[in-house]
Amino acid sequence: MINTTEQDSHYSSLEQLSVAELLQHINREDKTVPDAVEKALPQIEKLAVAVAEKMKAGGRLFYIGAGTSGRLGVVDASECPPTFGVSFDMVVGIIAGGDSAIRKAVEFAEDDAEQAWIDLQEYSISSKDVLVGIAASGGTPYVIGGLRRANEEGLITGCIVCNAGSPVAAEAQFPVEVVTGPEFVTGSTRMKAGTAQKLVLNMLSTTVMIQLGRVKGNKMVDMQLSNHKLIDRGTRMIMQEIGVEETVAASLLKEHGSVRKAVDFYTNNNS
């Protein structure tokens, strides 16, 4: 049986369509992705709860994947430190073929079932941690092998796949299956499947970080102040939270280096 992600597109003769028609059809297909994610919410919830519990106890979150799936994991992991102020080794994304595969495909890297666990050893991964495999097809040997070995070593495992009943999901203790169906360009899982995986990763990491106390109200109070836009945002957040003028807020932010620390200092010394 052919995976749904490999089934023929609902559209044909794409090269004969106008630009407007191509865009309309792609957009029509993209609109189905959030509905597919919604159906998987109970699975996402179970995985998020498991990840949060492990991370509250000092564990880390690892993503493994190949191609587009691997790149999406790397992106999500790399965005956690600036957004939530966590260390760069708290959420780690690993792609088959190494970091060079982020920009250029590494041939057959995804077919090595042993390499994922070898790659993970560089981070001294242990049973304290969580491993999430990302694979649109659900059949990537690199991901299957990594999850299988992680299970043997006592880790919590999860996955994000876009086909039902896949080998990757069978290895994961907390599988997330978002069935997105045939792609607009047959088999091009960087499209709907990739969008679905990105949505799930956004939901997973954001929910976990909120559970870890890295958001206050609806604000990124631990964000890294790495550019003027973020400094301005942080200043406004302090003004709103404690009701001070802009100059005072800016001074507090510069002195303490984060919104949370600035607000805590002011509150503790003016209560």
Rank of each mutant, 00 (worst) to 15 (best):
G213C: 08
Y11R: 01
G93K: 05
I134G: 09
E45V: 14
E241I: 00
Q24C: 12
N163R: 04
Q43W: 03
L61I: 11
Q43V: 06
D35C: 07
K46L: 13
E107H: 07
E183T: 08
T207N: 10
N227F: 04
V33Y: 01
G146K: 00
G93D: 06
Q16R: 12
Q240N: 14
M239W: 03
G234C: 02
G67V: 02
S126K: 00
V49N: 11
F84A: 03
M220S: 07
T235C: 08
R233L: 00
T206L: 10
A57L: 12
G138W: 08
M90T: 15
S205H: 06
G217P: 05
V51M: 09
F88H: 12
T195D: 07
F108Q: 14
K104H: 12
D99Y: 05
D112K: 11
I2P: 14
R71S: 07
V248D: 12
E153S: 11
V215M: 11
I95T: 07
D112C: 09
V91Q: 04
H256T: 00
H10L: 14
S205E: 08
G217A: 10
V74H: 02
G133N: 08
P141L: 04
L14E: 12
S166K: 07
I95W: 04
P42Y: 09
E246N: 11
S205D: 06
K31C: 11
Y123A: 04
E122I: 04
I44Q: 03
E110D: 11
T140P: 10
D30T: 06
N27S: 15
G257N: 08
G234S: 04
L230K: 03
